[in-house]
């Protein structure tokens, strides 16, 4: 088990700076996520840790040991790929045993460890199956078992769930998180899905254009975004000038839809602003509606369903917001 230190790591492809001076420290046993839009450099950074991509500058250490010049096959990393990368010419057991054989694990030990790993991902008894007989979810479990069984220092995941259907994604991410925590292996997880990142991570590094935008616990980034990009990427938000909320200054502020309520449903101390309803969506547990303020700006509001609330486009409403949840952006 190891912490990971990334210092000043840079990589360009032609004129594209895929990873641009990234500094990061990942704690021992931490579940750390690289989050950002497609093309922001997450995969490149992950592949540099794995040893499949050269660094133009900077260094990477596992604990005290510098690893960025080591050949990939000596780095002791378990990697899970987006497209599973399960070897089609080997059985499930053959796939899981692959890394153990490379490490010359004795035969008796090998069979036991393969069985354990398969049980861990709920595939006990699937050892003799061939990959083409498995579903996508099962293939990804094989890939995870294969990466875990070698007891690597570090686990790397590159969008491991993006090829699965929505329901499976939700249950698998919980499973991955649970496995990682029970084994205590440091993990770096790449995704472009903000919700997935928030649900599994201890900490998140939000990336844009090869640079780190903000690093912190999921709730911290959500509640205190350091930039307009962070505020928007972490979830729906209202970006308005402070003046529109009846505050001083022309600064841009971010106010989450759930920090707004109807006058009647809000605590008395919250500031009020008037406007008219433009659009209403009742989504079941949550009702979303848009309110146009007198100065013309639009506020998105999200509220839990209330059976007696009536809202119709055109109606004049008074809104209240939680002043503690207004984030002033630079």
């Amino acid at each position: 088990m190891t912490g990971i230190v990334i210092e000043g790591v840079t990589r360009s492809f032609g004129t594209v700076r895929a990873v641009d001076g990234v500094d990061l420290t990942v704690g021992d046993g931490e579940f750390f996520t690289l989050l950002g839009p497609s093309g922001c450099g997450k995969t490149t950074l992950l592949r540099m840790i794995a040893g499949f991509c050269e660094l133009d500058g900077g260094e990477i250490r596992f604990g005290q040991k510098r690893i960025d010049r080591l050949p990939a096959h000596t780095r002791d990393i378990g990697m899970v790929f987006q497209n599973y990368a399960v070897f089609p010419n080997l059985t499930v057991a053959g796939n899981v045993a692959y890394g153990l054989k490379a490490r010359r694990v004795a035969a008796a030990d090998l069979a036991r460890r393969v069985d354990e790993a398969l049980a861990l991902v709920q595939l006990a008894g699937y050892g003799e199956r061939w990959p083409h007989q498995l579903s996508g979810g099962q293939l990804q479990r094989v890939a995870i078992a294969r990466a875990l069984v070698i007891r690597p220092q570090v686990l790397l995941f590159d969008e491991p769930l993006s090829n699965l259907d929505a329901r499976l994604r939700v249950s698998m991410r919980a499973e991955i998180r649970e496995l990682q925590k029970s084994l205590g292996i440091t993990a770096i997880y790449v995704t472009h899905d903000q919700e997935e990142a928030m649900s599994v991570s201890d900490r998140i590094a939000l990336m844009q254009n090869g640079k780190l935008e903000q690093v912190g616990a999921p709730a911290e980034i959500y509640r205190n975004p350091a930039s307009r990009f962070a505020a928007e990427f972490m979830g729906t938000t209202n970006l308005v000038e402070a003046r529109a909320l009846g505050r001083d200054g022309a600064d841009l502020v971010s106010l989450r839809p759930e920090a707004l309520r109807l006058d009647a449903e809000a605590p008395p101390g919250w500031p009020r602003i008037g406007g008219s309803v433009v659009h209403v969506e009742i989504l079941g547990p949550i009702t979303r509606f848009d309110v146009r303020l007198v100065d013309g700006s639009l506020l998105k509001v999200a509220a839990l369903d209330e059976p007696h609330r009536t809202l119709a486009p055109g109606a004049a409403v008074m809104l209240a917001y939680d002043p503690a949840r207004v984030t002033v952006l630079p």
């Binding site: 096959h73 070897f87 692959y98």
Partner: peptide, 15 residues
Amino acid sequence: DPSLEEASISLGRSP
């Protein structure tokens, strides 16, 4: 898929 090769390498087999 090249990721098959990368998977093998990350599991400890040389290129």
